Amino acid sequence: MKKLWLTSLAVFLLVITMSSSAFAKMNKDAGWLSVDNVALGGITMGMTQDEVASIYGQPDTSKDYGVSLESGAYTIMWKYGDTFTVWYADGYVDGATTTADNGIQTPAGIHVGSPVGDVWKSYGQPWLDQNNKTYYSYWYHTDGGRKLFIDVKNKRVIRVAMGYE
């Protein structure tokens, strides 16, 4: 009976360990960045549409989402090609995402295609390390609520984004 109980306990602990690793691991003392590290391709949070257009020109496509029910902000999305997107709230950059090695990178030089080792060397341990089963998502944050999100698959960066949670 004792052997059965110990085996059951071992299986239970193994299941708990495996299921928790499939979700997220928070490192509340890690992953802090200075605000100037949260930028993509020269774009920083809070820039105006005119400032972004002065760097990249007018977008290939633009979508007006109107007033967001969640935030109350007027939301617009600009796309450059199929791989670089900039989001605006009330006319100011609220986030950006790149999904290809298109020259867009962070101030530390992290871009789609970078090895995961470069991410860890540049930014250290993330604040949130999330296993999404097909890729890992590393979250870094600042005192101002800005975040840098880096997704990794097969030890290579597949997406870099910035924004607010």
Score class of each variant (00 low, 15 high):
K2M: 05
L4M: 08
W5I: 15
L6S: 12
T7H: 06
S8Y: 02
S8K: 05
L9F: 09
A10L: 15
V11F: 07
L13G: 07
T17K: 05
T17M: 07
S19P: 00
S19M: 11
S20I: 14
A22T: 08
N27Q: 07
N27V: 00
K28G: 06
K28I: 08
A30N: 10
G31H: 08
W32D: 10
S34A: 15
D36T: 12
A39T: 06
A39C: 08
L40N: 07
L40G: 06
G41T: 11
I43E: 04
T44A: 12
M45L: 13
M45G: 04
G46I: 04
T48S: 15
D50G: 01
E51M: 00
E51V: 00
V52P: 01
I55G: 10
G57S: 11
P59Y: 04
D60E: 10
T61H: 09
S62P: 01
D64I: 02
D64Q: 10
S68F: 09
L69F: 04
L69W: 03
E70A: 12
S71G: 02
S71K: 01
S71D: 07
A73T: 11
I76G: 01
M77D: 08
W78R: 05
W78A: 04
W78Y: 13
K79Y: 01
Y80M: 08
Y80S: 07
G81W: 05
G81V: 04
T83H: 15
F84I: 01
V86G: 02
Y88E: 02
A89E: 14
A89D: 14
D90P: 09
G91M: 07
Y92E: 13
D94L: 04
D94Q: 11
T98P: 03
T99D: 09
A100H: 08
D101P: 00
G103E: 14
P107N: 05
A108F: 06
A108S: 15
G109T: 15
H111E: 13
V112E: 01
V112A: 02
G113W: 06
S114K: 08
S114E: 09
P115Y: 09
V116F: 04
V116A: 12
D118A: 15
V119D: 03
V119A: 03
V119G: 03
W120R: 14
W120F: 14
K121F: 09
Y123M: 00
Y123L: 00
G124L: 00
Q125C: 08
L128T: 15
D129K: 10
N131C: 00
Y135T: 04
S137L: 11
Y138R: 06
Y138A: 05
W139G: 10
W139N: 11
H141C: 07
T142E: 05
T142K: 05
G145L: 02
R146S: 14
R146M: 12
K147I: 09
K147M: 11
F149S: 06
I150W: 05
D151Q: 15
V152A: 02
N154G: 09
R156M: 06
R156N: 08
I158W: 03
R159N: 13
V160A: 02
A161I: 00
A161D: 00
M162C: 02
G163T: 12
E165W: 11
E165I: 04
